[in-house]
Design a protein around this nucleic acid. Sequence first.
DNA 1: CATAGAAGTCGGGTATTATA
DNA 2: TATAATACCCGACTTCTATG
Length: 304
Amino acid sequence: MLAVPGALPTDGSRYALEIKWDGIRAIVYKDYQDPQVRITGRHAADYTSRYPEVAGLAVDLAGHRVVLDGELVAFDRTGRPAFQRLQRRMHVTDPGRLAEFVPVTYLPFDLLHLDGYDLFDVPYLDRRDLLERLGIDIPPRFPGDATELLTISREQGLEGVIAKRLDSPYRPGRRSDWWIKVKNLDTRDVVIGGWRPGRGRRAGGVGSLLMGAFGGRGLVYVGHVGTGFTDAALNDLHARLAPLETEESPFAVPVPPEIARGSRWVRPELVGEVAFTVWTEERRLRNAVWRGLRPDKVPAEVIV
DNA sequence: CATAGAAGTCGGGTATTATA
DNA sequence: TATAATACCCGACTTCTATG
């Protein structure tokens, strides 16, 4: 069951709030007599050998038959979920000592089966109650009207919150507005320094835009953005970028070669707005989404 | 007409293949 | 042999389209 993006519900009394954990979604299975748990990912891939840390749950759940839904998370030194750390583990089927350097925590937030009973049609609040009675470590739940949680999650550098209807059933694999994810998005202006041709449906036009902002030495590359456009916006951008085309890259610091290859350069004269989640360690905008041109803004005022 | 899936895009990662 | 390029993995998002 997946959440739809949206805003905090106004009728908070009908919802509970949980922190949105920035990790990998995973289902954990434990059978009555089985001394081990089994872990699968969203596409039914088997993760059991990848995350030995979860094996300890089998002890806590001894004698039970349980299916849990939750998130695999790697915390950084400051205690925040760090997806970039988790990425080092994602492809490693036998982590060995890597599990010591990049430990992973499983945060179970829903209970789908308990001792012979499927709980898909049991309301969220009751599933959650049963989950809490299992006595395992689970992430906290907050009242639906505790809207300050969103502010706090932003201040703490967390991804956002999820609002879940107290009476909602569980629908595996489905995206449903019983669950609403409220993300802490930031917006900022960027200068377009180039573009990459599209493929497939976007062949012959713009695929993505290379974004920059002015720093001490000149235009600095801050990532590229390839989503959030309508077809009309892509066509409009293509027409506006064509007369600005140059041979030389306008970026003062060379952009990574794998990005530069195949890119077309333009004079940095167009300013646009993007939404994003956080700055990455490489000083790029993570999960950038195009919001539109800002003809009212001057490129020189777009500062890193 | 609503919804699910496909197709495009992103960042960051690993693993494999190609090339200098 | 070492580096570069490619392909694929995970997460994300939006838009378009096929389907019921």
